[in-house]
Design a protein around this nucleic acid. Structure first.
Lengths: 254, 254
DNA sequence: CTTTCTTTATGTTAATCGTACACATAGAGA
DNA sequence: TCTCTATGTGTACGATTAACATAAAGAAAG
């Protein structure tokens, strides 16, 4: 059985078990080395990358399907995961061109609906806890700097762009970091995250005042030592206050 | 041909021409007599109401489909219309119960997919310019106070609730009113809109200061006369500044 | 051991914003 | 002409923000 045959049989299974005409794409954000990262998959036997995505089983809620995709690609569960946009244009991307870049076998074209609308989700995950895992259609899975994306299939470049825009807006009235930072972190490290998402530097003195004023952080008795200069305190998120801030939408606007 | 036959044939046409398994529901907000209103349809020959909704033609974008539904029900075009949530639970509502309340003919059940996910849109329209128009499935179309909704089919009660929540959030960083108010209006009238959406009274003196400070309003030389007491000035929205405020997301937070 | 250098932690100040409240004004009705 | 009340404008005060200053910590260099 050739790869081409496998592919067609795979899509036939999907067509049988899943809701037809609707897919979902997950923009999975991580944070590492002062940079905001996105998790991407490389389409098998090509140099083309795409977002982790999938289809919705007939008895499964769309949100659950997104959680499943996230789990399958990262090994993580129960994370911050949110709908952000439905991509529903009739011609979201150049189909011929995309199939060619994917090296899609041509008998394929008959066995698939003419268009697919896609629900976009974005997730915030702890980079250090993720085990990037490729799927049936891909031969690599890895992180990319949001500023240095590779060649992307479909309309995934736009999807990432819209996700980032949404994330930036969200920053104005909800805290982030709970799922992006490791369990213990310093305030300057958290500031790097905010700077990476907003794409501009922040005043460290005002940031410190602001973020501690939200009472979503608990200062530990430990410090991060070993580096030159004054050792910063380590912090943890105060889960209950963090949740309250998420729901109430305290203005942050760093 | 009985109504029952017509209904089945109607849904067969839909199944043929439209994307299967995906629908859309529009929460159309209007404003009248100090109250926020929602446009609802009454299901033919029942006392059950529902949101205007529809399906997506195979060659039509989802956003365009929402615009079409809005136009068909209100006669209005090119309005503020926005996605707000995908309702994708596998069992969004009690199907048996709903069909019974709809007096749905039972041969129907075989000719329709097991589940439908629905994209929620909300629109802001000028109450005075709307001609509520019933569709094939309904025998009445009218406005309801968001606080006094009738018996609703499907999960439309929840959909309205989520739409209202989204609208309230949006109020914190975007102006509203351009499509909800008539062309000329007074500041106290605009204040009534904000109060209706937020569900709480505002201080008229501070509201006046705040709203004029955004420079999205142009004061006309006319006043609204005929009523008792001091005649208030009439205002218009300054379109270019209004658009800028929409895009930039100036904090408003009344 | 002392000095230097740099990052972290905390503090200060002036400007701005939000909230609460006071008051003069206009216009219809008594 | 007086009254009543919604409207338009203004003021005062506390809270918040943005910009800038300084002290403390800790490793490296002399």
């Amino acid at each position: 059985m050739t790869y081409s045959d496998k592919l067609i049989s795979y899509y036939k299974t999907i067509a049988n078990d899943c809701v037809l005409g609707v897919s979902l794409d997950c923009v999975i954000f991580g944070f590492h080395d002062t940079r905001l990262k996105v998790l991407l998959l490389r389409w098998k036997d090509t140099n083309e990358w795409c977002l982790p995505g999938g289809f919705i089983y007939k008895t499964e809620s769309v949100d659950d399907a997104a959680g499943r995709v996230l789990y399958e690609r990262t090994g993580l569960n129960k994370l911050f995961l949110q709908q952000f946009h439905l991509f529903g244009e009739a011609n979201r991307y150049d189909r011929e061109d995309t199939w060619q870049r994917q090296k899609m076998p041509m008998p394929f074209s008959g066995s698939w609906p003419d268009r697919t609308i896609s629900m976009g989700y974005y997730a915030l995950v702890d980079y250090t806890k993720v085990t990037p895992t490729a799927d049936f259609l891909s031969d690599a899975c890895g992180w990319f700097d949001v500023g240095e994306l590779p060649s992307l299939l479909y309309d995934h470049c736009r999807i990432i762009h819209v996700a980032l825009q949404t994330l930036r807006l969200q920053l104005n009235w909800q805290p982030i970091g709970l799922n992006l930072m490791p369990e213990k972190f310093t305030i300057p490290e958290l500031q790097r995250l905010y700077e990476a998402v907003l794409g501009r530097p922040l005043d460290s003195r005002n940031f410190h005042k602001k973020i501690t004023g939200l009472s979503i952080l608990t200062r530990l008795d430990e410090r991060r030592t070993g580096r030159a200069h004054k050792s910063p305190y380590l912090y943890q998120f105060d889960l209950s206050n963090y949740q309250r801030a998420l729901v109430n939408g305290n203005l942050i606007f760093v």
